[in-house]
Design a protein around this nucleic acid. Structure first.
Lengths: 207, 207
DNA sequence: AGGAAACTTGAAACCTGGTTCATGTTTCAA
DNA sequence: TTGAAACATGAACCAGGTTTCAAGTTTCCT
């Protein structure tokens, strides 16, 4: 889960040294594994530092508390999801194609990084503000794409926020079922095709 | 949140007396409030017993642990959601109408019982087995309705589990955004109408 | 009425794990 | 080279909450 620069957590704890940056990164990576495997409460700081190969006390050089590192992690990961999606949307395509591609990318990402899924979900309880922000910005990005599609005359002109949230919910639950829980019973492309088809035509009989 | 008989948690702790059943119910109701307000970890047993108006020690007459009462609660609530949905589906209607009615009911229920929403969501981390079961059975019920609609020639014949999960995800996220977070910026009927329309026709321009 | 089982009580034992801190080591700019 | 700031270390501290328990009280069946 290395996204490069750790998301700006501007406490008074920013490392000022190369060594410091390395340790911070090690802690963040270790925390991703620890929180992903055990969940916020069963996770322990000593578990994190043990995985990171640092001393317990070092933790507090970089973070004020267990909550603080969790928050840094959520923001880091929210960013990583965003980046993965942006990459999938690189080449131009029709609006519907783009939604399908975005979902395929999301499903692949979720299968590859199940811990991200879990940690962002758990943020609903541990760090509600970041959770809300994650889904609000994600929803806003989807809505932008829908509006763009409408502008090009490919999508209906009356699409609004609720449509974006509907699509987002669809994606998240398909991710949970087929990427996180599923053992590949349905491949990402297949799931994305079904959802794309639903978006294209609805579920009613063809008219 | 009184669903009648507390869901069968067949430990060796079933009450054998009327008084016992009353206390058990009080604890369950108090726990719903406590967990809903503070989340699993910030919630405390003494907070629950205080709200219930019983002694701390009495808790252990009925439940083995904090996890145990949480699990009982999740199952109780999963049942309550199911019941609320069933009631909304009482009178017959077209398949698409039924989905819209189910969503309306769900949104109303979620707005009315935000704590249910939160507790079931938190079960993903506190009691994963119950969480999974809740969504698997809910998904299965949706799929049943879709198949019934297909049988009647109202819905496409190729609908499968993934469609049901897509719809479920849509519903859950719309519930989160508009029932739990929203302050009535969009009323339940309006949200359900948008989602119903999406299911009926998709988001592409009309052909 | 009588007594056994069910239930209640709340003080205190007990644990767990987050956080602090005093001491030592490494980095890096001058 | 040098010294001040940054960083590392882990034992010990400590708060808070779960769980236990021994001593009552209430229920309910016969």
């Amino acid at each position: 889960m290395d996204t490069g620069t750790p998301a700006a957590a501007d406490t008074n704890k920013q490392p000022r040294t190369e060594r410091g940056r390395r340790t911070l990164r090690k802690l963040l990576d270790a925390a991703a594994v620890e929180f992903g495997e055990r969940g916020f409460h069963d996770a322990s700081i000593s578990g994190i530092t043990a995985r990171a190969g640092t001393a317990l006390g070092s933790f507090y050089t970089y973070f004020d508390s267990k909550e603080a590192i969790f928050q840094a992690l959520v923001r880091d990961m929210s960013e990583a999801v965003k980046v993965a999606a942006r990459e999938a949307l690189a080449e131009p395509a029709s609006a519907l194609e783009r939604e399908r591609a975005a979902l395929t990318a999301f499903l692949r990402f979720a299968a590859e990084h199940k811990e991200v899924y879990r940690i962002i979900d758990e943020a609903e309880f541990v760090d509600p503000e970041s959770y809300r922000q994650h889904y609000e910005t994600t929803g806003a990005r989807i809505l932008d794409r829908l509006r763009e599609g409408a502008r090009k005359g490919e999508l209906r002109a009356d699409l609004e926020e609720a449509h974006a949230w509907a699509i987002m919910g669809m994606n998240v639950f398909l991710g949970l079922r087929y990427a996180v829980w599923g053992e590949g019973d349905l491949p990402a492309e297949r799931v994305a095709a079904i959802a794309g088809d639903l978006l294209a035509k609805g579920i009613a009989v063809d008219r």
